[in-house]
Amino acid sequence: MVQAINAALGQEMQADARVIVLGEDVGRDGGVFRVTEGLLEKFGENRVIDTPLSELGIVGASIGLAVNGMRPIAEIQFDGFTYAGLDQLIDHASRIRTRSRGAYSCPLVVRFPCGGGIHAPEHHSESPETYFVHTPGLKVVCPSTPGDAKGLLASCVQDPDPCIFMEPKRIYRAVKEEVNEERYTIPFGVAKGVREGEDVTLIAWGAMVRECVKAADQLEAEHVSCEVLDVRSLKPLDVNAIVNSVKKTGRVLVVHEAPKTLGLGAEIVALIQEHAFLSLEAPVGRVTGFDVAMPLYKLEEAYLPNVNRIVEGVRRTVLF
């Protein structure tokens, strides 16, 4: 996935001189995960910019750059540091089109590695998607494969409005596939059916998709057929894909790393009851992080949803 994101950045920069990359360690170091490796050499220091250690400054300056005709891609080094830029995203980036009645827009991309699973230090394993999804005017995506990462990032860069691109760091190098070398986009708001099934729909995004697939493999042996839906685009959500799958299976489990209360799963459950209430055979289940602070790594595995918890969740749903 690192290579796919790097390729997308390079292709978008090649195609559009307004596209610049800025953030901490993105230049000479190529990013702490090497996502921006080689870009400085290729595009020069006016387009690949090592900034001060200043997340608010990075996002705030990027808003000014975007409003004045550039297409900044701001990297925030880790999920837990996005909060310092949140005010700028909520108060300004997301609403400048509205506030100026269309006179100004903010074509900005904020990318950051998200989620747990790599035994990282404190504040390096957060899943903050709800804050962004809850903010009108932002688009939010979180890919689970290299191919999706490349196409969704291209869509973000080409979009005329601010986009949040979340990179599940535990699958940066763990999920591998051949990726189309051409420049391409994947539209927002289109979920991907990862696996077809009849009995239960598993809904996830990012690193949790892989866990869901593993759980589905295991459940196959127990003659429970699971459909796995990767929503990919957290906002806009592909409500039709979710509803259609629910109408088919009648049973749903939503899986995410973020804490349970008001996690995106809550919205998905609400949408299902609004749009497919009469198709449900059981209450929609959730397997999520707990309503606790993300722990240090000795307890990380206990916090994160895993195959066992997903399988257990499916059993509960099926046996309801």
Binding site: G60, A61, S62, A66, D87, H92
Partner: peptide, 14 residues
């Protein structure tokens, strides 16, 4: 003060 970084970004683009 939230507008101060925007001024920096816009001037930077210039």
């Amino acid at each position: 003060s939230s507008q101060i970084p925007h001024a920096v970004g816009a001037a930077w683009a210039c």
